[in-house]
Simulated assay, not measured.
Amino acid sequence: MSEVFPRHVLCVLGSGLELSEMQRIAAGFGGFVLDREYSGAEPDPRMPGAFEASMAAVSFDEADRDAVRSHDTVGYLLSAPLMRELAADTSRRLLAATAALLRSGAAAVKNESNGLTHGRARWLALADDAAGATDENLAAALVAAWVKRPVYDGQVLYSCGMHLLGAPEVEIEPGTRPPAPEDLPGLVAHLDTLAIYLLTDPRAREIEDGAGFRMTEDAPRWVLRTGTCDRYDEDDLFFNPYGYVRLTREQ
């Protein structure tokens, strides 16, 4: 396993929110600092395109797009490198910090470490879901907040962002290429169920190739395969040092 430690890099657009205030709010949630080199107190004309490329269409409304277009500040908040055992808790705290920033003048937020954004209402709902949640409910909220899925590479559907929670990415072979639109909800449900299992079951650290996996006791059996992250270089923010776990159809 790679010795690289992932980290969150959060892009925060301000609208009347100064960089010093971004830093103060984020620091209140522990361990998050402002990258002074890349942050700036002026608008960046690349941001509308950057947010659209980060799955904005899924949860943005016109007010979110207007907020991106009218931003006046760009701040980059960094987490410390994520030790595996602390990654989920750090991500929970960063989700709470994101909600606090949005309630204090942030126009929009996206994560450079997974290429994912949400609209304001979606960010706040996810933070509310995570607040006070435990076990599977907390894992589900964190996956929804920080894991981009499904991404299709022509062969498999996969996730990007599980490294921010201290776990391997999840993948699934769709059966048809490209996957049929009517099959996508079921395939994504399998990805999410596997992701939550990896985050909540101690046995997940001991997965071996060929092990079986079922959504429910009477559901069809899938086979688990593991591998190393070969999509991204180790210096890429998307790189997952824990590799991936792939669902393949039982023959």
Rank of each mutant, 00 (worst) to 15 (best):
S2I: 13
S2Q: 14
S2M: 10
V4P: 04
V12D: 00
G14W: 00
G16F: 02
L17P: 00
S20W: 03
S20G: 15
S20E: 14
E21L: 14
M22F: 05
Q23L: 13
I25Y: 00
A26D: 00
G28D: 09
G28E: 10
G28V: 14
F29K: 07
G31N: 07
F32K: 02
Y38I: 14
Y38A: 10
S39N: 10
E42A: 14
D44F: 04
P48G: 07
P48S: 06
G49A: 13
A50R: 08
F51L: 11
F51V: 11
E52K: 08
E52W: 03
A56G: 11
S59W: 12
F60H: 08
D61G: 14
E62D: 15
D64S: 07
R65F: 02
S70I: 12
H71S: 05
T73M: 01
G75A: 06
G75R: 00
Y76A: 00
S79E: 06
M83D: 13
R84D: 04
E85V: 14
L86Y: 04
A87H: 02
R92P: 01
R92T: 12
L94W: 01
L95V: 14
A97G: 08
A97P: 02
A99S: 14
L102A: 04
S104T: 04
A106C: 10
V109A: 04
E112W: 05
E112K: 11
H118S: 12
R120E: 11
R122F: 08
W123L: 09
A125D: 12
D128Y: 09
D129S: 15
A131S: 13
D135R: 13
N137E: 15
A139I: 14
L142N: 01
A144D: 13
A144Q: 08
A144C: 04
A145P: 01
R149I: 04
Y152D: 05
Y152S: 02
Q155K: 13
Q155H: 09
C160G: 03
G161W: 06
G161F: 01
G161V: 10
L164M: 12
A167C: 07
V170Y: 02
I172V: 15
P174S: 10
G175H: 11
P181M: 10
E182F: 05
G186K: 07
G186T: 15
A189M: 15
I196H: 02
L198G: 02
L198H: 04
R203H: 10
A204L: 03
R205T: 15
R205L: 12
E206C: 05
G210M: 06
G212A: 14
F213L: 11
R214W: 03
A219N: 11
W222K: 08
L224D: 13
R225M: 05
G227Q: 07
T228K: 12
R231G: 00
Y232Q: 08
D233A: 10
D235G: 03
D235I: 08
L237G: 03
L237N: 07
F239P: 01
F239G: 01
N240P: 01
N240C: 08
P241Y: 07
P241A: 05
R246H: 04
L247V: 06
T248P: 00
R249V: 07
R249H: 13
